[in-house]
Nucleic acid binder design. Structure first.
Lengths: 212, 212
DNA sequence: TCCAAGTGGAGGTTCTTTCTCCGTTTCACA
DNA sequence: TGTGAAACGGAGAAAGAACCTCCACTTGGA
């Protein structure tokens, strides 16, 4: 399976544009807009991805794969477990990857094998980071995988408002640092649902009740 | 200016529905949907608010007014400055007020006197809380008004995804507590733009460069 | 050089949203 | 309890937005 060089480049442009726009505007973006942002004609988009679902699937699988890669790299490069977790969070923020995944969860069939595998691999890699930080004692036990992941999503999602995009991103970085700083050796009793990874998985699967 | 009791009730329903829906879906919500959620006919909406802008203005003025009230109450009811700030954040989260304001910033003319006044009053009240917490020493100096406000927005905004609404809200509460916990007695050096209130105001006004 | 692979974008079609119009219902005062 | 002004709901015409196909043109690479 080799494509012509220009075709491959366009495919990448398309995935990148779709990632950004879906992160910003949700899974219902106008496909025309995606094509335009990617700098290609609309026909090129439809040639690669016969429908919206195919495009979204492409975006999310790419994002999950990058998440996994970044998480594994963070684990390998940092001896200290908390530092590894922090490094992962920073890298994931740069990739804008966490902003896009929850947006498409509504829309895609997560049972679909290729997607389920990517999901599992990414979750496993990130959960390992959280677990290690728990064990090392720097991350409070009551701060779960889900808490960390969701806060990352909250911080990665672009704020609405008339602000310049670059500034938005700098602020996101700043706020991630603020979060990380508060995470380390914070103590106290945290109220509210302590979701585990499997709670999350079940929820995505369809049901929306927590065992609690 | 007295309205019939049912008319007033409907007006409130409308504002409430619009607040929720705009917070969830942005300022472009279908007005039909707003009317339906409010439990009134579409004509009733158009009778009160001749166009989308009027509705959004109504929503945001209401929201700003509630913000001010809640901030002043928090200041009055808590001796400890940090506790007062925390109480304000919790109350603002419940009102879903912070989620709606940035959504409409794009769309509305902020110079318009009535709106500018509401904005100023709300900002003044909340800034007082942040300043007091700075002075008391419990809130690190490098965590600005803008940082606190934006983190509140991030936490108040509903996460995308298939989760049950009530659960989403419980998690938002939990994450706000996590944030508050991390705020107190956090120390270190925070990088990135330290926006003041006036930076924020200028930005909203149109320019998007920061004095830095 | 040549052609298979790749491309862009105009525009017909379909779906969504807006907003008016008017017959019906409801409140509130006597 | 009767009355009318105020308020209401919702159907549907008109406007707008998004989708997606088709085909004449361009380009990479052997």
């Amino acid at each position: 399976m080799s494509m012509r060089a220009d075709a491959r480049r366009n495919l990448e442009q398309l995935l990148g544009a779709a990632r950004d726009l879906v992160a910003d505007k949700g899974p219902g973006v106008a496909l025309d807009e995606v094509a335009q942002r990617a700098g290609v004609g609309i026909a090129t988009l439809y040639r690669r991805f016969p429908d919206r679902t195919a495009l979204l699937r492409g975006v999310v699988i790419d994002a999950l794969e990058q998440t996994r890669a970044v998480a594994e790299r963070a684990a390998a490069e940092h001896g200290d477990a908390f530092e590894a977790l922090a490094a992962y969070l920073r890298a994931a923020l740069e990739l804008r990857v966490s902003a896009v995944i929850p947006q498409v969860l509504d829309v895609l069939d997560l049972e679909e094998p290729e997607l389920a595998a990517a999901r599992e691999a990414a979750a496993r890699a990130t959960e390992a980071l959280v677990d290690a930080a728990h064990v090392s004692g720097d991350l409070p036990k009551d701060v779960t995988f889900a808490d960390v992941g969701m806060m990352l999503v909250r911080i990665a999602r672009p704020l609405p408002g008339p602000m310049d995009d670059e500034l938005k991103h700098e602020l996101a970085r700043r706020h991630l640092e603020l979060f990380i700083r508060g995470l380390r050796r914070a103590d106290g009793e945290l109220e509210g649902p302590e979701l585990s990874r499997s709670d999350l998985a079940e929820m995505a699967h369809g049901g929306s009740t927590v065992s609690s």
